[in-house]
């Protein structure tokens, strides 16, 4: 699969550093400036959202009308909103929600996609036909309308079931994840189809490896690189989708300040307090841009054949 050709046996073979698949990928990745920029920015944002609220201790929820809609200043680096709440504190707190929605939805989508793709590609036959029909069906569903509809109709019941924040979180993550797995499934299936015909799989089969071991130990590691790339990029998609939902007023409740929700709240104050919209929007943009840079860099690093195109 990969182009890591073992070093030719030469006299000074001992002096050459050991080259591994991941080492090669890392060397290629390191040369990609945009990917490095993306990684750095992303790490900074994640660190800021995880550690930030511990250092920057302004309350994200304390209401103070005497300090409403203040422009950015030293006391409030991102300004304050219409209720006098500190925007930076809310952006940091909201980032935790937005990022965890992105990562968890990605896990849902990748798990579903990998399972369906692996089973479909490994077994073939009628299972393959049925699962691929199922995938096609999901691909022709009207995504955004359906997303809005499901969230709007079921949020009340989940709120009652698991509390206002957790309930919506579960719903949003499940719905975004279960509308995003199709491309991964197709990708994994296609790779499985080609890898399962290879000799080493035949050899493993010959010594009596059971299907589960063939799938996960022998074939799956070979299709890992496209899955990693797809996983990275799907975090970005999920964050945008969550923000879109929140922006249309269908996401988390008002006291959970996700980035999309902050933008939604800022919509009516664009004239008096543009900073209320600017900073959360900038965070979404920077996060998604960095994720896309990292994803692109990973694609080039993990799959050298793509690069030659």
């Amino acid at each position: 699969m990969s182009a890591s050709i073992p070093a030719p046996p030469q006299a000074n073979v001992q002096e050459r550093p050991l080259r591994t698949l991941w080492g090669d990928a890392w060397r290629r990745f390191r040369r990609d400036r945009l990917a490095l920029f993306g990684t750095a920015t992303l790490l900074l944002i994640i660190l800021g959202c995880v550690v930030g609220p511990l250092i920057y201790t302004a309350s994200p929820s304390q209401i103070d009308f005497s300090r409403s809609q203040l422009p950015p200043s030293w006391a409030h680096p991102f300004g304050t909103n219409d209720l006098g709440q500190d925007v930076l504190a809310r952006v940091l707190r909201g980032g935790r929600v937005s990022l965890s929605v992105g990562i968890t939805s990605m896990l849902v989508a990748i798990t579903m996609g990998t399972l369906i793709g692996a089973i479909s590609g490994f077994y073939g036959g009628w299972i393959d036909v049925a699962l691929m029909r199922f995938t096609d069906l999901f691909l022709s569903l009207p995504q955004l309308p359906l997303l809005l509809l499901v969230i709007f109709l079921f949020r009340e019941s989940l709120r009652r079931l698991a509390g206002p924040e957790t309930g919506i979180f579960i719903l949003v993550v499940l719905v975004i994840g279960s509308l995003n797995w199709m491309s991964v499934a197709r990708l994994v299936r296609a790779s499985f189809l080609s890898v399962r015909e290879m000799d080493f799989v035949l050899a493993a089969r010959a010594i009596g490896a059971p299907a589960r071991r063939l799938i996960w130990v022998h074939i799956f590691p070979n299709v890992l690189s496209p899955v990693i790339v797809a996983a990275t990029l799907s975090v970005g998609t999920a964050i945008i989708t969550e923000s879109t939902l929140s922006f249309l007023g269908l996401g988390f409740p008002p006291d959970v300040p996700t980035w999309g929700r902050l933008l939604f709240d800022a919509r009516n104050y664009l004239e008096q307090a543009p900073h209320m919209a600017f900073f959360p929007g900038l965070m979404i943009f920077l996060t998604v841009l960095s994720i896309n840079f990292v994803g692109d860099g990973l694609r080039d690093a993990l799959d050298p054949q793509m690069r030659q195109r």
Partner: peptide, 14 residues
């Protein structure tokens, strides 16, 4: 790259 990383709701507001 920037264009497709910019969500439409943010461009619109900007």
């Amino acid at each position: 790259f920037v264009g497709f990383s910019l969500p439409t709701f943010f461009t619109g507001i900007l």
